[in-house]
Design a binder for these strands. Structure first.
Lengths: 234, 234
DNA sequence: TATACATTTTCTGTATACAGGATTCAATGG
DNA sequence: CCATTGAATCCTGTATACAGAAAATGTATA
C-alpha cells in the first residue's frame, strides 16, 4: 500500500457544513438570509437530513440562529456581537503566545519564522487574498505550538465570524507595514521565550484588528441605512 | 392573557440533547459507551432523527466523539484533555473577573454578595449537592456581570466536562475553608473594582480546582488499572 | 487449532413520507 | 376602507424506509 489513504470518507453533513460555512463567511449568504431546508437541499443536491445536521452544527457555532418551527437564518453580525467575540479572542490569543513561549520546539520556531517570511513576501505582492492566507497560516503555527487541542478548536471557531472583514482589515493595515511589524514583534518574543513581551505584542495585534473591524462594521451599517433611505431595500 | 407563556415549545432534539448531556455528566453514560441511535431512540421514546441531531450538538461540544460509519461514543476523559480545558478556562475565568470589575452594576454587587453568603451557608450544611449548586450560582453571577454573551456560553460549555469531578473537588476543598476564602477574595476585589487583585484571586481559585481534578483523574485511572489487574473488566 | 473466506447481522448514512404549526392572502362582514 | 376569518400553502419537526459499510458469526480447509 502506497500511503495511509484510508478514512477519506466525508459524510454529506460535513460537506454541507463546510459549504454553508464558506457561503456565510464570504457573504454569499448574507446575514438575515433564511436557510430553507428543501431549497438548500436541491441546490446542493442532497436531501434534508444532512442539511439539518449541518445547520445544527452551525447553530452551536453561532453562525446561524434558529427560531423554533420557523427555521434557521444567518446570524446578524452586530457590533456588540463582534465585540464580544474579540474580547474573548484577545484573552485566548494572549494565552496562545504565552503557551507557545513555554512549549514551542526548535522546529516550531523554524516554522514560525518561515511563516513570518512568507507573510512578508505576500505583503510585497499586495495580493489581499494571498496576504490573508499567509496571515492565517502564521497564526496557525502559533496556535498549534500550544499543543492545546481545545484551544486550537476554539480559536478556529472564534476566528470565523470575522473572516468577512479580513480583506478590509488587511487593506487597512498592510499598507502601513503595521502587520509586518507586529508579526515580527511576536516572533521575536516567542523566540526569546519572553512570555510577557509576547503577550503584549499579541494584545496590541488584536487591538488593532478590533479597531479596524469595528470601524468596518460601522461603515457597513451607515451604508445600509443610506440604502434604506433611498429605498434600495430589496 | 395571564402572562407571556408563548414559545414554551421545545423540540425533541433539545430535550434529547439535555437528557444525554445530563446522563454523560452524571456518569450514567460512562466514557467510552457507544451511543446507538435506535437503542437510545426507543429508550427515550423518539425516533432516530432527534437523536442524531442531539449527537451532532454534543459532538461539537466535545462530549461525544464520532467515528464515521462507526458511530458515536462518550468521549474519553483524559488528563491531557481536561488539562487543556482547564488551561483555557483559567484564561477565561480571569477575563471574567476583570470584565466584571469594569462592568458590574451596584445591583450586580449585591447579587454577588448574596451568592457568596448563600455559598457559605451551603458549606455549613456540609451537603455536597447544595454546595455545588451554590458554587455554580456564584460563578454564574460573575459571568453574567461581564455582559459578554459569547463568554457566557463558552464558560458554560467549558464547565461541563468537569462536572463529573465537582463533588470530589468540593469534598477536597470545602472542608479546609479554602473555597470560602477564595470566594471572599474574589468578591472583595470585584467590589473594589481592583481588576489585578481579582485576576490573581480567580487564577488561584482555578489552579486549586485544577490540582484537585487532576488528582482525582489519576486516582480514577489507578483504580481502573487495579480492576483490570484483578480481571474485573466487564 | 488456526486461518481464510463467505454469510449474516447490525449500524450508520441518506432519502423520503407524513403531520401539524405558521404565514399569507383573499373573501366576507362591519 | 379596514378588520377578521378561514382556507391554502409552505416549512419545520418527526418518523420511517432503504442502501451500503463494518463487524460478527459461522464454515471449511490446511
Amino acid at each position: 500500500m502506497p500511503a495511509a489513504k484510508e478514512e477519506d470518507f466525508l459524510p454529506l453533513r460535513d460537506s454541507v457544513y463546510n459549504k454553508l460555512r464558506q457561503a456565510i463567511l464570504t457573504g454569499e449568504l448574507p446575514a438575515g438570509e433564511r436557510l430553507m431546508e428543501v431549497h438548500l437541499g436541491d441546490k446542493l443536491g442532497v436531501s434534508r437530513t444532512p442539511i439539518r445536521e449541518a445547520i445544527r452544527m452551525l447553530e452551536l457555532e453561532g453562525l446561524v440562529t434558529m427560531i423554533p418551527r420557523k427555521g434557521a437564518m444567518v446570524s446578524q453580525i452586530t457590533e456588540k456581537n463582534m465585540s464580544d467575540v474579540l474580547e474573548v479572542r484577545r484573552a485566548l490569543d494572549i494565552l496562545c503566545v504565552q503557551l507557545a513561549c513555554e512549549r514551542i520546539t526548535p522546529e516550531g520556531i523554524d516554522e514560525l519564522k518561515k511563516a513570518r517570511d512568507a507573510f512578508e513576501k505576500a505583503v510585497d505582492t499586495n495580493d489581499s487574498r494571498r496576504i490573508a492566507q499567509a496571515d492565517v497560516e502564521f497564526h496557525n503555527v502559533i496556535i498549534r505550538a500550544t499543543g492545546n487541542d481545545r484551544l486550537i478548536s476554539l480559536e478556529d471557531s472564534l476566528s470565523l465570524p470575522m473572516y468577512r472583514y479580513r480583506y478590509e482589515y488587511i487593506k487597512d493595515s498592510s499598507g502601513h507595514g503595521n502587520l509586518v511589524k507586529e508579526h515580527r514583534g511576536i516572533v521575536n518574543a516567542i523566540e526569546k521565550r519572553n512570555a510577557e513581551a509576547a503577550a503584549e505584542a499579541a494584545g496590541e495585534h488584536i487591538d488593532n484588528q478590533r479597531r479596524s473591524i469595528i470601524r468596518q462594521i460601522r461603515l457597513d451599517r451607515e451604508e445600509e441605512s443610506m440604502n434604506a433611505l433611498y429605498g434600495k431595500r430589496r
